[in-house]
Design a binder for these strands. Structure first.
Lengths: 217, 217
DNA sequence: TTATAATTAGAATGATAATTCTAATTATAG
DNA sequence: CTATAATTAGAATTATCATTCTAATTATAA
């Protein structure tokens, strides 16, 4: 759920800055209703008219705020990433991060990851469908993934015997690439055998991460 | 590259069966030009008019054959899966499958997989964008993945010490889930560190598969 | 309080593309 | 060879939505 606090820090091109309280509320409403609609729609089929109707607003007010539907979507994506960043900042600053064993740490990471994916399934699917393969174009998914790895990696490294060179870091980064790849694929086509909504999902993924990171002797 | 042979075996709802040679040729042309266009477009932005222009055909002839654009896309997807099946049938029936060691076999599997993804990148991206999460809806990606696992699994099992129950099979199937997830994600958002076009891609994936399948003692 | 900027409303416009229609033209079975 | 079914052409039709416009209405700073 996005809130006005996030909006305050946001300066997104394509959105005219809000000045009045009623506008601030409208933007927050548009964002949250947008997220709801994305549970059944992708960005293309998300109609501005339908969105405004749900918010009891009109297309006029929509375009008074956003340069285009495109700009609205960009804003929404950026706010969700800001929300994720706020969450990661808070949780990694707390003492919630397990530091007693690698399996515990990985279980905790995967559990959090799976929960985030479950909570943002609609948006994630829409972003995946819209994403260009081109690495120069920004997408919230790359950014959120990058963030997540940046936070987690030092904690993982700290629980393992040091290795010369960057081999360990490379293995960890690639393990995350496989993790997010698998999660994204669950959201998009859910190929099985493991599904996002299965209780065992996080556990299975954590075990896989462990296999990928710790070298066999 | 799709050909008339594939078309012969196909009976797709939404496509009126071809009777004359010129029609057969047109359908093959539409399919292959469609595949070409998908390198830069997804299914939505693939316009029937543009497609027909490239094939030196007209929209009239297009709709004479296909009930709708939807039906055309379905047909295209089914033909590509038929093509993949034909390829897998042939290669697994030959003596090309390594049976001397698991690393060799996995390297061979991943190399083939990466090549298929490179050759079909446009179509795969388009399918991923279109796919519904709903498992009841058919998508070529689930089907092709399922096929691939069905062919590969017995060969992998044969190279490992037997285990009681289905644990080994489950590990293998899940390793494939991660493999295809990672590949799909490369096609969609290419998050790095490893990319589909890097020479090391297949090797890295094969190493990961090995880690996932063989249990640490 | 009042001038001014911000906001709202919702009908009107425009653009894009899928789809249909009808009259030729062409292939093929008997 | 010829009747009939298949195919082609491309203009015309629809449908869907994003976007714009203009006249109220409302908030806010001085």
């Amino acid at each position: 759920m996005l809130d006005e606090e996030l909006l305050a820090g946001a300066d997104v091109p394509g959105m005219r800055p809000v000045q009045q309280q009623r506008s601030r509320e409208l933007v927050v409403r548009l964002m949250n209703e947008g997220l709801t609609l994305l549970q059944d729609h992708d960005f293309d089929s998300l109609s501005v008219e339908a969105l405004c109707a749900r918010c009891e607003a009109t297309v006029g007010s929509f375009y008074g705020r956003f340069e285009s539907k495109e700009a609205f979507i960009d804003t929404l994506q950026r706010l969700v990433v800001a929300d994720a960043r706020r969450y990661l900042d808070a949780i990694y600053a707390s003492d919630a991060v397990p530091d007693d064993s690698l399996p515990h740490l990985l279980a905790w990471i995967c559990k959090g990851g799976v929960r985030w994916y479950r909570d943002h399934e609609g948006l994630i699917r829409a972003c995946l469908r819209r994403a260009t393969h081109d690495r120069r174009t920004w997408t919230p998914l790359r950014e959120a993934g990058r963030l997540h790895v940046a936070y987690a990696l030092p904690h993982i490294v700290a629980l393992l015997p040091p290795e010369p060179g960057t081999a360990l870091e490379e293995r960890i980064t690639f393990a995350f690439q496989m993790l997010f790849g698998t999660l994204n694929n669950m959201v998009l086509i859910d190929p099985g055998p493991v599904s996002l909504r299965q209780p065992a999902a996080a556990r299975t993924l954590a075990a896989a991460m462990h296999q990928l990171i710790v070298l066999r002797m």
